[in-house]
Write a protein that binds this DNA or RNA. Structure first.
Lengths: 343, 343
DNA sequence: TAAATTTTTTTACGCGTGTAAAAAAACCCT
DNA sequence: AGGGTTTTTTTACACGCGTAAAAAAATTTA
């Protein structure tokens, strides 16, 4: 490594013995120049640690190589896990992902979209807050920046949506619980942040109706992203009042179930599929921690990898199309039942 | 909102009826210009939605307003929670934080440092991977970019370190467990990713020695960032073999404890501080989920807020000093004991 | 070997903003 | 009102790279 500092592309070009425009071509596409020139450049790259100034590069590009990834709440391991896959996929294809979390706040989500606009990204993968999102602002954003929504659908907004097939999640768990015991009641939050929750309730009601069972929806008070706490406090109350309508509970998501299981434990309610147990509890999402609840949680798995892959692939297609699909795409991934000890 | 599109600062200057350099001054410091000019600009800002091109802005600045935040593993809610505080603090002071996760991989950590170098940040807050970090590379990075380490200390690297006082964590929990029962054994991973784990073991040994108790360190096999799984599998094995040296267990961190508690539950081992219970389990970190374990986890709390604040404040000081402190700073925050049901 | 083709070089301008220096204008105080 | 001070305007260049056009060189093909 030579200690002579390279300040810009012109200096690096001299160090290579090659003209600057060719160097520029190389950095935009290494295969677009003659192999012998390319070899010279790569040899020089070993001697000096030159990298093009990203700000100067992006200033002249109509479109950068930046990708925005926005999630509603990064402290939720579900999203953290998702992001892990997505980031890797973008990096491997030469893009620079920038990660943002709305931390459950509408204002922050708006600020993030503002910053994103300023960085002229090639595309954005957005998991919106949902109910509390500023729908109009997001719609305006999507019309300026190629955007694919994921996890949480805002009807008609963005060029595509990739998410999970909530109906499949519910039907598989309800079917299993019913077959091996009794039809479940449905435990949810009264004011869910995320539209999936509403879809799941609707799916529950429709499936119970189709099976000719009486549905029981139990809605817990509480707002925000502290789902475990809501499940916990609600669970304590339900168990104290003995007001659960059935001995089988399907929770709207794993985080709620984690709180609910904690409440069961505290109240001495035995959860499991054994005859001697008091309650069966199942849930949805296959949250990274659901293997470590007590008892371990029977749940319906999101296929993190497939969803991530498809979201990334869709965004690439969208970018190649110039940011518009003929028709809004919607792809829902079905669930896979994960049998554990809780039901 | 006028529909005339403003393309650059010159056009916006005309729209304001003010010269371009003054506009430039305004965006760099709104208070540096005459109030009447400022009012004109802000009025125009309401009519047009102009924002300076960040790439053009940063191209000429020796130092940007960007801040890098790097954590080793974002799917760990501990870091996700930390990041939440830190991001907010930077945004509120007019900086643009960029968030990166090394996802437990040395290669990724290196790539992140490369990207960071390219974005010429004003400063970086780095929680390194620890043992598997490329120490030399990080040291080189720190000598180019004002960097404050947090959570995980690499001796002598970076201008400052902010973390937790592992000795305080251990002494408080050991003291409590001893006073209310018996001295604990120490459950840890054999090859911890994070240097805190080693500090904690050392603290345990030294404290037990001072108290004249025989120390028992139980090391679990397994590598990587799946701490819960390691605690779970190790726990199953320990309980099967009945090889736990004491009936009181202090886990090296909460995630390990979460796995261990799951193992206890599976094996029918009752955990709690009641006389009828088989085992007492305490841990360290006050992980966001430790309130929802079964039983809820007695632990020593990190003061997320104080650590975050101090880290951010230290980085600002470092930036103002031009990136060098006279002497490397080290600030450790003590723990607060959180009594719950597990011990 | 000459002609045709591809690749590289040369030259030159543009991107949008920071910023320095000098001139002009606005403001403040007596 | 006049002089001094502060602020703004004018003018001009710089930053580092993309890229277009024309010329030159290298390579391939006939």
């Amino acid at each position: 490594m030579s200690d002579k500092k390279i300040r810009n592309m012109a200096e690096f070009a001299i160090a290579c013995g090659i003209s600057r425009p060719t160097i520029s071509k190389y950095f935009n596409d290494p295969d677009s120049i003659k192999p012998s020139s390319r070899a010279k450049i790569e040899e020089a790259l070993g001697r000096y640690d030159y990298r093009p100034n990203i700000y100067a590069v992006n200033q002249n590009r109509q479109m950068t190589k930046n990708i925005g990834i926005v999630v509603p709440y990064l402290a939720d391991p579900f999203f953290a896990e998702m992001v892990r896959f997505i980031e890797r996929l973008f990096i491997d294809t030469g893009y620079s992902p920038s990660l943002f979390s709305s931390h459950g706040e509408q204002k922050l989500e708006m600020e993030i979209l503002d910053s994103l606009r300023a960085m002229k990204p090639a595309g954005v993968l957005l998991a919106p807050l949902g109910r509390i999102s500023n729908h109009k602002a997001i719609e305006a954003f999507c019309s300026n920046v190629p955007t694919v929504l994921f996890d949480s659908n805002l009807e008609g907004i963005g060029e595509a949506f990739i998410g999970s097939d909530n109906h499949s999640f519910i039907s598989q768990t309800v079917e299993y619980l019913t077959r091996t015991g009794e039809p479940p009641c449905f435990l949810e939050m009264k004011h869910p942040a995320n539209p999936n929750a509403n879809k799941r309730r609707e799916a529950y009601l429709s499936i119970m109706h189709d099976l000719d069972f009486e549905p029981h929806v139990v809605s817990l008070d509480g707002t925000g992203w502290g789902f475990e706490e809501i499940g916990h406090q609600g669970g304590i109350k339900l168990l104290q009042e003995k007001s659960l309508p059935t001995r089988t509970v399907l929770c709207s998501n794993d985080r709620l179930a984690i709180g609910f299981l904690a409440a069961c434990y505290e109240r001495g309610v035995r959860v499991g599929r054994d005859e001697s147990d008091d309650l069966r509890v199942a849930s949805l999402d296959d949250h990274p921690f659901s293997r470590f609840t007590c008892p371990s949680l029977t749940t319906a798995a999101q296929d993190y990898m497939s969803v991530s892959k498809h979201a990334v692939e869709t965004l690439f297609r969208l970018i190649e199309c110039g940011g518009r699909f003929e028709q809004r795409e919607e792809k829902l991934f079905p669930a896979k039942l994960i049998l554990r000890e809780s039901a």
